[in-house]
């Protein structure tokens, strides 16, 4: 058979929108966990994480330490890639396209242009269409989500308020994004122009929501998930997967909590299973009330 002798010379294309969004589709129903070293990455993979986010400090520590938060040391990222067989994500500062170039050169599977790091540009986000690696971006409302999609984001996460262990902001953002999607599906064609103006978003993306009833890309939840019930709440509200940052490794006993959050994310509509996996997990991260925080990361992004 002649075909067998040829190498893979057939025409292929990498980095297409379908390929980028494809990986986002594969992460659905899963838990992406923040890890700061190889040991935590192993714990996350052992617990059933569908991907890990490699970063130097979890958001709770960034909040505590203050100062400028930047992309992680490449050495630390490659160390985590070496022990993980699941996708590895990493964060670049908003607008810092060189950090993103560096992360892409490391073979990072998903780049998070993240408000948790200190923004590098007060007006512009990264032109994500220029990259082969896919990007995930945070959003507090539908307009922000659509602006990020127009810049090339392959995945949107509701921002919540990272490092607080408090789910209230994530709920607000999910309700805002999904609520507006629902309203747009009820709008007539003339009203869509007004929606695009109000959201400061490209009209074609608004029209597409009216047609399909959803964003072009998946919507995940981040920022404040600390318990299995928090994860299931986000899923029931309409998130398609969850990011857990400080919630796991700032708790008393990370491994069982990580596994329980994975199971609750899968069985998010089944309170009996959520109750079962929530037993005896030890203390969750302490958490902070919104009136006690000085800097709202969610406000970063334009």
């Amino acid at each position: 058979m002649a075909k067998r002798e040829t190498e893979n010379t057939a025409k292929t294309s990498t980095g297409s929108m379908l390929v980028k969004r494809g990986l986002a589709e594969m992460l659905k129903g899963g838990v992406i966990m923040d890890v700061v070293n190889a040991e935590q990455a192993k714990i996350a993979e052992d617990a059933g994480a569908c991907a890990v986010m490699a970063l130097e400090r979890v958001p709770a520590d960034i909040r505590r330490d203050g100062g400028v938060a930047r992309m992680s040391d490449p050495e630390m990222i490659t160390g985590i890639q070496a022990v993980c067989s699941i996708p590895v994500m990493a964060k670049a500062r908003i607008g810092h396209f060189v950090e993103a170039q560096v992360l892409e050169s490391l073979g990072v599977d998903f780049i998070d242009e993240s408000e948790v790091l200190t923004p590098a540009d007060e007006a512009h986000h990264i032109d994500k269409l220029k990259f082969t690696a896919p990007f995930v971006c945070g959003a507090t409302n539908l307009g922000e989500a659509l602006r990020r999609i127009s810049e090339g984001a392959a995945l949107i996460r509701s921002k919540g308020e990272a490092g607080t262990g408090n789910i209230v902001e994530a709920v607000r953002h999910l309700r805002s994004i999904i609520g507006d999607i629902r309203k747009i599906t009820q709008a007539d064609s003339a009203e869509l122009f007004e929606w695009a103006k109000r959201l400061q978003a490209p009209l074609p993306l608004v029209q597409e929501i009216a047609e399909t009833g959803w964003l072009q890309v998946p919507l995940f939840c981040a920022g404040g998930i600390a318990t299995p019930s928090d994860a299931a709440l986000a899923m029931q509200l309409g998130a398609q997967a969850v990011f857990v940052g400080s919630g796991i490794f700032k708790s008393d006993d990370p491994a069982p909590r990580a596994k329980a959050i994975v199971e609750a994310t899968t069985h998010f509509r089944d309170p009996e299973i959520i109750a079962k996996v929530s037993r005896n997990l030890g203390g969750p991260m302490t958490g902070i009330g919104m009136d006690k925080i000085e800097q709202r990361y969610a406000e970063r992004g334009w």
């Binding site: 057939a10 292929t12 294309s13 990498t14 390929v19 494809g22 073979g107 599977d109 998903f110 690696a133």
Partner: peptide, 16 residues
């Protein structure tokens, strides 16, 4: 073999 084609930057589409 898992992940045999490499990382995400090596993911691709092609006609078969």
């Amino acid at each position: 073999q898992r992940n045999a084609y490499g990382r995400q930057i090596d993911s691709f589409e092609a006609e078969i």
